[in-house]
C-alpha cells in the first residue's frame, strides 16, 4: 500500500492543477504564466506516477519522463520568446499586449 492512496493523490493533483490554472488566467506577466503552466504540468505528472504506483506499473513513470521532456521544451521556447520580445524593445511583459504583435 503506497503511503498516499490514489484518492488522496487525485485530490492533491486536482487542487494543484486548479491553482496553476488560476495563476495562468489571473496573471498577465508572461513569466508568471509560464510558471503557472509548469505547476499544471507537475500536477498531471504526479497523477501519472500515483496511478503507476497504484497498479504497480512502470508506465506511469515513463509518462512522467515524457512530461518532463515536454516541460523542458516548453519552458525553453517560452523563455526564448520572452527574451526576444524584450530584446525588441517591448516595454512590458504583459501578455494582453501580445495581440498587437507586428513583425
Amino acid at each position: 500500500m503506497p503511503v498516499l492512496s490514489l484518492n488522496e493523490s487525485l485530490l492533491f493533483t486536482s487542487m494543484l492543477f486548479s491553482v496553476g490554472l488560476a495563476g495562468m488566467l489571473v496573471r498577465r506577466n508572461l513569466v508568471f504564466m509560464l510558471m503557472s503552466l509548469d505547476v499544471m504540468l507537475n500536477a498531471s505528472a504526479v497523477l501519472f506516477v500515483a496511478a503507476g504506483a497504484r497498479w504497480h506499473d512502470a508506465s506511469g513513470q515513463v509518462m512522467f519522463l515524457m512530461i518532463l521532456a515536454l516541460a523542458a521544451v516548453e519552458t525553453s521556447v517560452g523563455l526564448a520568446i520572452i527574451l526576444c520580445l524584450h530584446a525588441q524593445g517591448r516595454p512590458t511583459l504583459d501578455a494582453d499586449t501580445g495581440n498587437l504583435l507586428r513583425g
Binding site: L21, M24, G98
Partner: peptide
C-alpha cells in the same frame, strides 16, 4: 477573437 492568450486559455478551461 481578441488575440489574447489568457482569454483563449480561459475559453479552454
Amino acid at each position: 477573437q481578441n488575440g489574447r492568450v489568457r482569454w483563449y486559455a480561459g475559453w479552454v478551461a
